[in-house]
Every structure is written in C-alpha cells, then in structure tokens.
C-alpha cells in the first residue's frame, strides 16, 4: 500500500522534529514546512492526504491556511489544527472555516497519530 502523505506546517523546530520522527516511524510520508509561504508553494504542486497545521505561524496563519485550502484550492483534505492553550477562540474559528480536528499543546505524538488515523479512516 502506498504511504499516506502528510503536510506538517509547524514553525517550532523542536516540535516539528519530534513529530516528523514519530510520523515517519508511523509509516507516513511527511513534508515539514516551517512557514506559511512554503506551505502555499508546496500545496500548489502537491496534494497531501492530510494537513496538520499550527494555528500561529509566520506569514500565513493556520486559520488562513484552512481558508486557503477550502476556498481557494477547493479541497476537502482533512485538516488537524495544533493550538496553544489560551487560544480557544481561534479553534472555534478554525472549526467554522472547516478544520476537522484539533490538538492542544503540549502535544502527545501518540495522540496525534491516533487522530490522524481517525481522520484518514473517514475519507
């Protein structure tokens, strides 16, 4: 079976490295982008099976990313949002714009993987 492709948009290198490691271990093909411009460029040429995005990112926030994917690209790729504590109102906006799930920092990689599996099963 072909590996599922994930796009991980996370500007925190520490978290990105850890998640990348665990996701690759988990059998996914992972593209890590650390800022919104790179995310946009990547999406112009590739269509991942699922997107994981931090809400706060330079140049292009997670919220803008959802809007871009849903409205501009017209894709229903599952999107999981990474939020920081105290940012609950952003999560609501994210859901309104079409995010499928969210996970709060500090993140347990195992939990994220379970959430990814669940979203991919729904597709």
């Amino acid at each position: 079976m072909e590996k599922k492709k994930l796009l991980l948009a996370e500007d925190d290198e520490l978290l990105a490295s850890l998640l990348n490691f665990r996701l690759v271990k988990g059998g996914y093909e992972v593209k890590v982008s650390s800022d919104g411009r790179a995310v946009k460029e990547h999406l112009a040429e590739h269509t991942p099976d699922l997107i994981i995005s931090d809400i706060m990112m330079p140049y292009f926030s997670g919220i803008e990313l959802i809007d871009y994917v849903r409205k501009e690209l017209n894709l229903n790729t599952p999107i999981i949002i990474i939020s920081s504590a105290g940012n609950e109102e952003n999560v609501l906006t994210a859901f309104e714009l079409g995010a499928n799930d969210f996970i709060s920092k500090p993140i347990s990689p195992s939990e994220l993987i379970v959430r990814i599996k669940r979203e991919l099963l729904k597709v």
Binding site: E13, L14, S17, L18, F21, R22, S108, P109, S110
Partner: peptide, 23 residues
Amino acid sequence: VILEDCLGQMDLLEELILLYKQN
C-alpha cells in the same frame, strides 16, 4: 516523558535538546 515520545531513542532526544539550547 519526552524520551518516551522519542520511543526511547537517545540520539533524537539529544538532537532535540541541542535545538532547545539554540532556541
């Protein structure tokens, strides 16, 4: 806890800590 998240891999943990210090 974090070592567990790294599936017990010390080199990854050390790599993360290096990043942490830089940050």
